[in-house]
């Protein structure tokens, strides 16, 4: 099975606006997802400078942007990616 890429932005804007919580994602994704998820910490992905996106912190799941990201939102998105 192809792995799900989860890129977490740890740029300053994302980190300040709540992205610091996303450090815990690795410990929270549970056994069922652990082997199929590829967590990639990133420096600023530049999304905060683009007016068309709504709100930091940002995470990219298989290239798709999750804004105002929380651990719950990201896990939800990962699960939807797997189901597809």
């Amino acid at each position: 099975m192809k792995k799900v890429d989860v890129e977490i932005c740890f740029g300053t804007t994302c980190f300040v606006m709540g992205g610091s919580h996303l450090q815990e994602l690795e410990n929270r994704i549970g056994k069922d997802l652990k082997d199929i998820v590829n967590i990639i910490p990133q420096n600023c992905m530049g999304l905060c400078k683009d007016e068309k996106y709504n709100q930091a912190p940002y995470v990219r799941v298989n290239g798709q942007i999750v804004d105002a990201a929380t651990i719950e939102k990201v896990i939800d998105k990962i699960k939807r990616e797997i189901d597809e």
Binding site: T12, T13, V16, N43, C44, C48
Partner: peptide, 13 residues
């Protein structure tokens, strides 16, 4: 932190 966000200051740079 808000000051960094408002002024687009990126620590890693």
């Amino acid at each position: 932190g808000s000051l960094f966000v408002a002024r687009h200051i990126e620590l890693s740079e």
